[in-house]
């Protein structure tokens, strides 16, 4: 049934394909995921191998043996970078899954049920929204053991407020629409209306939102790791930056220890932003808004036509 309900979205992929920025974002994200998945085959070294380090191996500049040089422990930066993608993306996907699930559930319930439920839920959201995320995250991670799971949970549990507000607003606007009233007139109950009429129209927004939350989660993870609160057992991009900063890469002039993780973070965040915007445009605003609204945007952007000439007649159309 669900598959049929979203039948109206079959044009989304076609429209996304015609959106160059969205396609670039998608390609960039797919590349990042590919790198993360294929890390064991792409990496020139085994990240867990025990290596004997001499003083000369520390912050070695790029060479045929180490394309991106070595870090403070004499490990290959390229290998760290490729495996770091796994950690950063894992955090990004799981944390955003948690955030969007919580935010989506709260937003849908608040927007759909209204009344007192909405008041309580939205007050709670507002409180969570005004508490600054990062200091709170720092405190929580500092108090608990800084493990990957904890970081995912903290980022996910603190990052849902934006989603909740967005989903609530969309739910409320869909709820106002006449086809919901028509379903009620037919005799449909809350569960049916939610499942059949509200959720399918809120879903696209949640998809777009998820993509954007992924980039936020990756940034947050990098920040936490950079501040020294990362999981010491894994090496994310943020962790790489942290080590580079705290262990003298700057003074050693070892730019190769800093640029790859920074590049990785920017790459994924940019990919998500572009894809998010592309998806937003591709999810057919015409289907989601009123036809008159769609007409209006057309007329208000009407361009003046270039000097019309009567000589310019295309032959054969009279």
């Amino acid at each position: 049934m669900m598959e049929q309900a979203t039948g109206g979205y079959r044009g989304v992929w076609r429209r996304l394909r015609r959106n160059p920025m969205g396609m670039i974002g998608l390609a960039m994200l797919v590349t990042a995921i590919g790198v993360a998945l294929l890390a064991p085959w792409l990496s020139p070294y085994d990240p867990n191998a025990i290596i004997r380090v001499t003083i000369l191996d520390i912050y070695q500049s790029p060479s045929p043996a180490h394309w991106l040089g070595t870090d403070d422990a004499g490990r290959d930066v390229l290998t760290n970078f490729l495996y770091g993608a796994r950690v950063s993306l894992t955090v990004g996907f799981f944390a955003s899954f948690i955030a969007v699930s919580i935010g989506g559930l709260l937003g849908l319930s608040a927007g759909f049920l209204g009344g007192r439920t909405e008041g309580v839920l939205m007050r709670f959201t507002d409180i969570m929204l005004v508490i600054p995320d990062l200091p709170l995250a720092v405190v929580i991670v500092a108090l608990t053991k800084p493990s990957l799971t904890n970081i995912i949970l903290v980022i996910g549990l603190l990052g849902w407020t934006g989603t909740a507000r967005l989903v609530r607003a969309q739910t409320m606007s869909v709820k106002q629409r006449k086809f919901v009233l028509r379903a009620r007139a037919v005799g449909a109950g809350n569960r049916y209306i939610m499942h059949r009429h509200i959720f399918p129209l809120v879903l696209p927004l949640m998809v777009v939102n998820t993509v954007l939350v992924i980039s936020l989660a990756i940034l947050n993870e990098s920040t936490l790791s950079f501040l020294g609160l990362g999981d010491p057992a894994t090496l994310s991009w943020g962790q790489m930056l942290n080590y580079a900063f705290t262990r003298g890469a700057m003074s050693a002039g070892a730019w190769w220890a800093l640029i790859p993780p920074g590049f990785g973070i920017v790459w994924v965040v940019l990919a998500c932003t572009l894809l998010g915007q592309g998806l937003e445009q591709a999810l057919n605003p015409r289907l989601l808004t009123h036809h008159l609204a769609a007409d209006r945007t057309l007329t208000s952007h009407r361009r003046l036509q270039p000097a019309p000439t009567s000589e310019g007649a295309t032959p054969g159309n009279r």
Binding site: R302, R303, Q305, A313
Partner: peptide
């Protein structure tokens, strides 16, 4: 003279 971009005044 506010036709959309696809509009062409051909004659008249």
């Amino acid at each position: 003279r506010l036709l959309p971009a696809a509009g062409r005044i051909v004659a008249g």
